[in-house]
């Protein structure tokens, strides 16, 4: 069932945007969390809600600041540049309650970290998608 869903999703994404490389949000394949809508995703990544609906704290992964995928992710998610998002976290730093996502060097390492961590959540370019992870949202 899950496999079929995944196949359909894969098929849709392949059909939908072969040229326009979308960004997908992924979790561990074993994570049964439902698909995230945009609000949930914004609250998660901007630090408002750090938990999955099941109560588990999410380990949020960010891509390298220079990466294209990070730029696309935030541009599509909150309409802001990487610098603006950095400024947002900087503003919160002095309150002692800033909780920016953990930065991972590249998509490969993101995939690896998610496969290894049940509560991890990250985003990658759709074309870098591999087995062992599950897509919970498309950001484009």
């Amino acid at each position: 069932m899950i496999k079929r869903q995944r196949l359909i999703l894969l098929l849709i994404t392949l059909l939908a945007s072969p040229l326009q490389a979308g960004v997908v949000v992924i979790v561990n394949a074993e994570n049964t969390v439902n698909d995230f809508n945009q609000r949930q995703l914004v609250d998660l990544y901007m630090g408002r809600d750090l938990y999955f609906p099941n109560g588990q704290m999410a380990l949020r992964l960010d891509q390298s600041p220079d990466s294209k995928v990070r730029k696309n992710f935030y541009a599509n998610l909150v309409g802001k540049t990487v610098a603006q998002v950095n400024a947002y976290w900087a503003r919160l730093l002095f309150t002692g309650r800033a909780s920016p996502p953990q930065v991972i060097r590249n998509s490969k390492d993101v995939l690896k970290a998610i496969r290894n961590n049940f509560n991890a959540v990250g985003y990658i370019d759709e074309k870098d998608l591999e087995d062992g992870v599950r897509v919970i949202a498309h950001v484009d």
């Binding site: 901007m46 630090g47 408002r48 947002y88 503003r91 919160l92 002095f94 309150t95 002692g96 309650r97």
Partner: peptide
């Protein structure tokens, strides 16, 4: 902007600021 962020995150430190 700061006030919105404070309200968004319920960040009382930022709100107090």
């Amino acid at each position: 902007r700061s006030a919105s962020i404070a309200a968004y995150l319920d960040n009382s430190e930022l709100a107090l600021d």
